[in-house]
């Protein structure tokens, strides 16, 4: 019996080319204790969780302004385990964005953007932009009053982006106004365009990582562990913990839908955008009407875009990865948290 099982495993391993694969993975070494790698693995896992739960939701969701809210109500109220699947999808989306931010932040403070990792850094940032787009379009899909307000305010943010703002605003709305077209656009992007683009970017990101025998040359002298099995086992333990966290949040902290969107109703008081937009929301809320003769909001969003471009260009500006960059990253994080916290007050 045992021999038959071994044979069967051997048969599969032989066809998968298991031995050379594990040998190649074992030869690839990861610096011990570098949290950025675990966060990267967790982010990828959360993306897969969202794809799986998202596919389940598409079985019942109706991307039509007249039916969307009711269909989500039906998912959460009438379909067996629908509330769990919906809540699981929403919470994993929040954790996905949080892990993506944290992954890039730790790469930044460890100055992992230095040569020869420029392209890994850029694909990581592209992943962040696409990931935020994925979360934002998903936020609109329930077509609740909150989703409607988010679609309005979010697309209005986009209007202030220099050069392409007006085009981006109309593109996001699917026209001049927030209408049923906006929902259809958001749905198309959420289930097709953005996941496809993100898959390509993530594949490229991982491919670039495997082009070196060790991903962080300057850390090679430090203690390292093989990718397989040591890192995989540790990552699997971390993912188990993440799954427990998502399940706990999904079961005990439901995400209320609110009421169906109605353009005739005034926006909810103290309306807040999704948490990852809180800092920029606070900047716009507090923006003076005019700054240096320019519309205040436009000035500040332009400044934020310029900061984003500088962060993207870091590998080419700070080639050696000075410690000042790491300090600035911590300061920036502190400011962003402060802004987000003040938005909540």
């Amino acid at each position: 019996m045992s021999a038959a099982r071994d044979d069967s495993g051997g048969w599969l391993r032989e066809r998968l080319g298991w031995a050379p694969l594990t040998a190649a993975l074992a030869a690839y070494r990861i610096p011990r204790g570098n949290i950025a790698f675990y966060l990267g693995g967790t982010t990828l896992f959360l993306l897969l969780v969202q794809v799986a739960s998202g596919i389940m939701l598409t079985l019942y969701y109706k991307p039509d302004a007249a039916q969307a809210f009711r269909s989500v109500e039906r998912i959460t109220g009438e379909i067996e385990y629908g509330n769990l699947v919906h809540s699981f999808h929403v919470w994993s989306s929040d954790l996905f964005i949080a892990c993506l931010f944290a992954h890039l932040f730790f790469v930044l403070v460890r100055r992992g953007f230095r040569a020869p990792h420029e392209l890994s850094w850029l694909t990581g940032l592209m992943g962040l932009v696409l990931g935020v787009g994925l979360a934002f379009t998903g936020d609109i899909l329930p077509w609740s009053q909150r989703a409607y307000t988010d679609a309005r305010v979010g697309s209005e943010f986009a209007k202030y982006v220099p050069l392409v703002g007006t085009w981006l605003n109309r593109f996001l709305r699917g026209g001049d106004e927030v209408t049923s077209n906006t929902l259809v656009h958001a749905y198309g992007f959420h289930v097709a365009a953005l996941p496809a683009a993100l898959t390509l970017v993530v594949a490229l990101h991982i491919f670039l990582l495997t082009r070196r025998s060790t991903p962080v040359p300057e850390e090679a002298s430090r203690e390292t562990i093989p990718l397989y099995p040591d890192f995989f086992v540790r990552q699997a333990a971390a993912l188990t913990a993440v799954l427990v966290v998502i399940m706990t949040l999904a079961i005990f902290f439901e995400r209320p839908l609110g009421i169906a969107a109605d353009p005739r109703l005034s926006s909810p008081g103290g309306a807040m955008p999704p948490w990852y937009f809180l800092a920029i929301h606070q900047i716009l809320r507090a923006a003076p009407t005019e700054l240096l003769g320019i519309d205040g909001a436009r000035f500040l969003v332009s400044a934020a875009c310029l900061l984003g471009l500088l962060v993207a260009a870091l590998p080419f500006i700070d080639r050696r990865g000075s410690k000042a960059t790491a300090v600035l990253a911590w300061v920036l994080l502190f400011v962003l948290i402060l802004l987000a916290a003040s938005a909540l007050n």
Partner: peptide, 23 residues
Amino acid sequence: ALCTHLQCVVAYSAERNQIECPC
């Protein structure tokens, strides 16, 4: 009814006789 700040939908307050953006 779109606020010129961030396009939230405004409302009339009869009590204060003014138009308000609740956002």
